[in-house]
Amino acid sequence: MRLKGSIKPHIDGFVKRWLSQRIPPANRHRLTMRSIFILPSRFGWMFLLLCVGLFILGTNYQNNIMLLLCYLLVAIFLINLHASYWNFARLDISIDPIASGYAGEQSPLQLRIHPTNAKQAAVGKLQIANFNQPQSLSIDLIPQQPGNPTQVCQLSVDLPKRGVFQFPRITLSSFYPLGLYRCWTHLDFDREIVVYPTPLPCTLQLHQTGVDNEDASGLTTVVGHDDFAGLTPYVVGDSLNRIAWKQVAKQQNWVSKSFDSHHAVTGWLVLPTVSTEQLETALSKLAFQINQCTREGIQFGLLLGRQRIAPASGDQHRHACLRALAEFRLH
């Protein structure tokens, strides 16, 4: 037993190396002779056993029809070798880029099955499993109809912890048409998954560490002139430029237009110097603050040790910052 245990990793390593040579990573896999493995399934062996049984029964009873039936079943067994292989070889699979998610959550995974040509596509149930793992889930491919060229399977990926990962090798197998053979392949999709730290609610701490840092908080909304925000009752001293003359004409009440702007607020989110144990917590808090700032439209920058992301706002900026968190000091 112990010997077996020490050999197993070696074998696994060898298999992985061999597989990565035979089926190299790609975004889209069109199955070919190189990538398909096929063997009779357990049920297939059972079926053959049945054929042997029928042969013995037919011979012993000198029953020609029973023999004919037996040979017919053998012929079907042979024909199915082709049928299952060609059905599986029609698979043309890609997966969409996987959206980044937070650790502990699941990220949706879209598996696309393309038709190889206008008329034919793989059909039947398809089992999907992680490489070298027994539990699988099955999807049932819909027979192709015109106007339904690609089929999208909604799956999801568990994201256990923060980091940047390569999408793992998966095993696809099919028993179509009669379950006599198992066709399978181990596909490696060249997709990267970025797992952000789980956001941990905390108070927002914006530092003014940039070039000029006089105002410490900077969390105010400044009256601006860019964006029309609404009408306010006229207060003596308001600029005459801002008086809404049309409304004055209609309502005979003096109102002035008010404008505001969010551009004024900028700040820096900074990773405090912490011990390695508290690092994850600190990153989680930063993740929360990044989301908070984006929601409120605050322009912010990020300082992670030596890494520095210039202040900006918007979704793209948020993702860039969260990705930096995900990649930070991975062990």
Partner: peptide, 9 residues
């Protein structure tokens, strides 16, 4: 370590 799961429960 990353595991595929079905999205429907």
């Amino acid at each position: 370590m990353l595991a595929i799961t079905s999205q429907t429960s």
